[in-house]
Design a protein around this nucleic acid. Structure first.
Lengths: 139, 139
DNA sequence: TTATGTGCAAAACATTTGCAGGAGT
DNA sequence: ACTCCTGCAAATGTTTTGCACATAA
């Protein structure tokens, strides 16, 4: 794990990062807690929150502030976009090219110093589409 | 207010919508509550939440699920993008053209049925830039 | 008249924090 | 040793909900 000065390499940190790296599901803090607890049964939820926050602040992971009530986390830090299913809330990556030119446009159109952007698509995932079709067949 | 069947036109609903329409600041539910309370001192916070949610569901207003801990609301329902100040959390509109073509690209790149997208820029607002300069001058 | 909506308070949920003991450097 | 970190539990902040009464249609 890349570190800041005064940031210790603890077992908890290593395992949180390892477990997050294993999945592509953009888990919530609580889901990470459940994953990590299988290997470290006595870890506290506060520790998970503190370390996810810390790793997001130092750029080791990404904190996704997408729709829904909970924050989600992503071990892939290269820029990419996301889609969230309006039915079930699942979040997936969307592999389209990054729209670099819109940062400049936003710079021209506002009095902010632009740092970046994120695109969140909304839609219905494959499973929920099938679910819809099944319901339609019944009615 | 445009309505669904069985949706009554109450004083509370009218005033919530009026007050939200007066501002461009993308207020949180609690900020709407404070605005509305000046005219309806006995309104409950639950009523504000229930009605903002209902109006967002019926498309009368927009619920913004941008970064930060609270949801924000917007009386402007025509598609547009937002920017959030990384320092103070303020949210403003960004008036650049809507990137309609990326929905098709996302459709091709995923197995979701795409419904739409939203872009959130991050940056430093004018006031916070000045604040930074003032701090730099001191140090 | 009657189903829907409201005010109020409590509950639910996500996240943060204080603190005493534990562990990395 | 000296900090920083952790587990635990309590606190905080936001949103939702149950219920008895009020009100729009």
């Amino acid at each position: 794990m890349e570190q800041m000065p005064n940031m210790r390499l603890t077992t908890q940190r290593q395992i949180i990062l390892e477990e997050l790296g294993k999945v592509t599901s953009h888990p919530t803090a609580n889901e990470v807690y459940d994953m990590v607890r299988k290997r470290l049964p006595r870890i506290g939820l506060g520790t998970v929150y503190r370390n996810l926050e810390l790793m997001a602040d130092t750029g080791v992971i990404l904190k996704l502030e997408v729709g829904g009530t909970q924050k989600r986390f992503d071990a892939t830090v290269t820029p990419h976009y996301h889609i969230r299913c309006s039915k079930c809330g699942k979040v997936d990556d969307v592999h389209i090219e990054v729209q670099q030119q819109i940062n400049q446009r936003a710079q021209n159109a506002s009095n902010y110093k632009i740092l970046g952007h994120h695109i969140e698509f909304s839609g219905i995932c494959y499973d929920c589409q099938n679910e819809e079709d099944r319901q339609a067949a019944i009615n």
